[in-house]
Amino acid sequence: MEREPEISVRIFSDPQLLSGIRAMVEAIAKVVGFTDKSRGLLTLAVDEALANVIRHGYQNRTDGMIWINLWRVREPRGIRIVLEDLGRSVDPAQIKGRDLDDVKPGGLGVHIIKETMNESCWENRPGGGMRLTLVKWLSPEELQNSTPTQPENTIP
């Protein structure tokens, strides 16, 4: 059985709330041991995922619900974030980053998520909406340079 998330937040699908979530992810990523550059990219990836939920799942409505659950993971050390919503469902197979040779504004979010995260998995959520699981591990350099923590509630 899955452990309870270490952090669990529910927000409305309002873009003005995203800065608060970025600050939270950044702070936890620092505790885990990510470098400034990795924290920046991780924060960007989570922000892009939430922006996609708002834009595509809720079609820019600001009253949709988004649940954000977060765990520190132990082996390998890193962070796991699960986003769930009740917005419009899409076939996960259709979620693709766009061809970067096609220079046009928009559609970069999925590419950023896939490039940044070690794992990114979109699923249809039972009961409607989507679930996105994001995992990022510390790099070998980050692992070497960070102080190991012993969180009690981490996923082995």
């Binding site: 970025r22 924060t43 960007l44 922000d47 892009e48 922006a51 220079v103 046009k104 504004p105 928009g106 970069l108 979010g109 950023i112």
Partner: peptide
């Protein structure tokens, strides 16, 4: 301090 893909898209539009 921070720019996401919406910001990048805005700059691409400006460049084009």
């Amino acid at each position: 301090e921070y720019m996401d893909s919406s910001g990048i898209a805005t700059l691409i539009e400006a460049l084009q």
